[in-house]
Write a protein that binds this DNA or RNA. Structure first.
Length: 494
RNA sequence: GGCGCCGUAGCCAAGUGGUAAGGCAGAGGUCUGCAAAACCUCCAUCACCGGUUCGACUCCGGUCGGCGCCUCCA
């Protein structure tokens, strides 16, 4: 059983192989830090996170790089508006991005290179392309890549099979007059006054200016992966589908023209869009939901991750409150089982033994099949159901089952935060509590436990009126009590 | 206009040439003083029309509907 991944370059699911045994270089296009990233952006990052986690769970060492685009029209415009220098203007958005991704449980990449920290390698790359005659200087002082001199251009997006939209030629912006061919793209933009004002211009042998968007990924990936693995080809390059053209196409052109390699990345992976009300989530449409919005609404990362995992990464997904609520309910069930199993006494044999094998096999088969998270999830839910049944029957989880369960839930990250599941109520301690719930969370727990113990006593005395009174008292403070065969447990809600 | 994707139960969503995973919601049941949780049972013939085939949801053609890219974009 081996991992198979869909490669945009070949439009096929193919067996995954690496350049070097056991290790993978993974480059993922990160956010342009001109604003807060929305959950559509994060859908892509989350898919990449699952990819990374699965590679690691499969035994690969992964070197993961995610760039931060901090110099482009939008960041410059923003800096201009606030009167700040570019790097200062962008810093809060970088900080926010990291906060958001931690909230969503995205693993730390090994490097988060900022474009403005890699100006020298970018300049070197442009010089090389100029020297090779594949790039040229336009009349406006900018440097362009001549796609006519790079025959392989268009392979990724199948440009040869396309035609430009009728009338597209009429839309020519100022700097395009300087191009030899309308399709050439800019490598280095000649400095304008606005760029200078915010500190977004650098000296280069071919003129003062700033990097074009595509240039940074080539230069940074080549630099970092080259340093780390001594390679100038990536194992995997991933991003959103909208980056296929022109971004990744142009990266390929620059990089391959520079390295002489036939490929820039061996596998190209692209995540589909998240839509809202059926249309692409985009700042331009105003249908934006940010990670911060979700956090403010106390939506747990697990629910978001569950929602995204129910749909394959290459399928569009429409974000709705109903779908999110449904996902959240699913995480609750898995979480209840997880908590229940964790508290159960481990067994060395029994019903959990075969369950471990089934879970492991099915989960692995699903993930190996181009990250089929929907099916992987099905394996988890089935394991939980069968596990609950086994627990009901008095079986204890085996180490093998726990390990399979942990592996699967670690990859998908669909378990809710701990502390929200049933905990057995313990005997009341010496202290007594009033009906007033304390503010301190730890004390709250002790308070709830004490009242739950009082309720249990009332219940055992068959004083159901008092028992129910206490239950509603606890309920008002967010605690739910459950009477099970094996005792009474309480759960903190909300 | 060019390229491409999608249309599966009330909702979400896998799958695929041999008679449809899973989740949410719903109904009934077990357990329980009651409730919750958990478990059990029930709940689709895969947009439509043709064709290929012993057999299609799965392949081909067409129709209708939704969406994306071709321009900054996850």
């Amino acid at each position: 059983m081996t991992l198979r991944l869909y490669n945009t370059m070949t439009r096929q699911v193919e067996p995954f192989t690496t350049l070097d045994p056991g290790r993978v270089s993974l480059y993922t296009c990160g956010p342009t830090v001109y604003n807060y990233a929305h959950i559509g952006n994060f859908r892509t990052f989350l898919f990449e996170d699952v990819l990374r986690r699965w590679l690691e769970a499969s035994g690969y060492e992964v070197f993961h790089v995610m760039n931060l685009t901090d110099v482009d029209d939008k960041t410059i415009k923003g800096a201009l508006a606030t009167g700040a220098q570019l790097r200062d203007h962008v810093q809060p958005f970088i900080d926010a991005f990291h906060e958001d991704r931690r909230y969503l449980r995205l693993l730390d990449a090994h490097a988060y290179p900022r474009a403005t920290d890699f100006i020298a390698p970018m300049i070197a790359l442009v010089e090389d392309l100029l020297g090779k005659g594949i790039a040229y200087r336009g009349d406006d002082g900018s440097v362009y890549f001549a796609i006519g001199r790079f025959p392989a251009y268009g392979r990724l997006s199948r440009l040869d099979t396309r035609e430009l939209k009728a009338g597209a030629g009429g839309r020519v912006s100022t700097d395009e007059y300087a191009k030899e061919d309308a399709r050439d793209f800019v490598l280095w933009k000649a400095a304008r006054e606005d760029d200078e004002r915010v500190g977004a211009a650098w000296d280069a042998p071919f003129g003062r200016g700033r990097p074009g968007w595509h240039l940074e990924c080539s230069a940074m990936a080549l630099d970092l992966v080259g340093t780390r693995y001594g390679r100038d080809v990536l194992d995997i390059h991933a991003g959103g589908v909208d980056l296929i053209f022109p971004h990744h196409e142009d990266e390929i052109a620059q990089s391959c023209a520079h390295t002489g390699e036939p490929d820039f990345a061996r596998v190209w992976m692209h995540g589909e869009f998240l839509t809202m009300a059926g249309t692409k989530m985009s700042k331009r449409f105003g249908n934006i939901l940010t990670a911060r919005d979700l956090r403010e609404e106390h939506v747990e990362a697990s629910a978001v991750r569950m929602l995204f995992a129910t749909t394959h990464y290459r399928q569009k997904l429409d974000f709705t409150d109903e779908a999110l609520a449904s996902a959240r309910e699913g995480t609750r069930r898995l979480g209840e089982f997880d908590a229940r199993m964790s508290q159960a006494t481990e067994a060395t044999t029994g019903a959990f033994d075969p369950l471990a094998l089934v879970l492991d096999d099915e989960f692995t088969a699903a993930m190996d099949d181009d990250l089929n998270t929907s099916q992987a999830l099905a394996a988890l839910f089935e394991a939980a159901r069968a596990g609950n049944r086994a627990l009901d029957a008095g079986d204890g989880p085996t180490a093998a089952f726990r390990s399979a369960w942990t592996r699967a839930t670690t990859v998908l990250q669909v378990l809710p935060n701990s502390g929200r599941f049933a905990v057995a109520v313990e005997a009341a301690g010496e202290s007594t509590w009033t009906e007033q719930s304390p503010d301190d969370p730890t004390a709250q727990f002790a308070w709830a436990n004490w009242w739950a113990a009082q309720r249990l006593a009332a219940r055992q005395a068959r004083d159901f009126a008092e028992s129910d009174r206490i239950r509603s008292l606890l309920d008002r403070h967010g605690w739910e009590v459950r009477d099970n065969r094996d005792g009474t447990a309480m759960v903190q809600r909300k």
